[in-house]
Amino acid sequence: MKKYMLDMTVKECINIHANHCLLKLISDCTLPGTLPGQFVQVRVDNSPATFLRRPVSIHYIDEVNNELWLLIQKVGDGTRMMSKCRPGDRLNLILPLGNGFTIPPCTDNECKNLLIGGGVGTAPLLFLGARLKAKGHKPVFLLGARTQSELLQLQYFQAFGTVYTTTEDGSCGEKGFVTRHSILKSVRFDNIYTCGPKPMMKAVAEYAFSSSISCEVSLENTMACGIGACLCCVEDTREGNICVCTEGPVFNIDKLKWLN
């Protein structure tokens, strides 16, 4: 896929939680085609401690209004600066980057797809859910967080499929981790897609593997270039060290060395 470097305009920057913001960007030109699971590299200006671009997964694409949404967790100076954007500000992005999740053929609309997200890792699953629904699938979301306020964007997920939740403190949905949710026992899924903290994804991968369910995970190794030039973001896979930015960020668990 051809990559573009674009200046985009901030339409809204909404602080949806103390540690998270939703950034809605508008492109002057028609947005290039993108796949769920792909990411953008955002240049962060006016942040002296931020030298490299920040890789951020695509949260949602509104093709009608030419909007790109990013869900940002404020972890350091770079993401904090991004969360301070005001409407009208310009941001420079490189996109679309990486591969993307595998979407089952639309003829197979009986296929049961489970999208498991944790924390800010739920971000790419909204775009994936939207595309799955558009293809005639009925995606099921299983979203986990420490507490209710950290379950982000629930109303948007609900627009594209059934949503189940878990919280560690039991404030919303079932108490505990996503991998213990009762839906996993009551429904037989064909595909699992997951993105979130690595321990969560590893637990999901183990569950999928032991249940013989196809599973794709989205990795977020630290990156520099984002386009396969620097070889900094490699994951140690069954094919050796390969770039997460170009060969990923989405990997089938069969390719990883997570499972024995």
Binding site: F51, L52, T222, M223, C230, C233, V234, E235, D236, N241
Partner: peptide, 8 residues
């Protein structure tokens, strides 16, 4: 991995 660290 890890092979990269950002610096000022």
């Amino acid at each position: 991995y890890p092979r990269m660290a950002e610096t000022p």
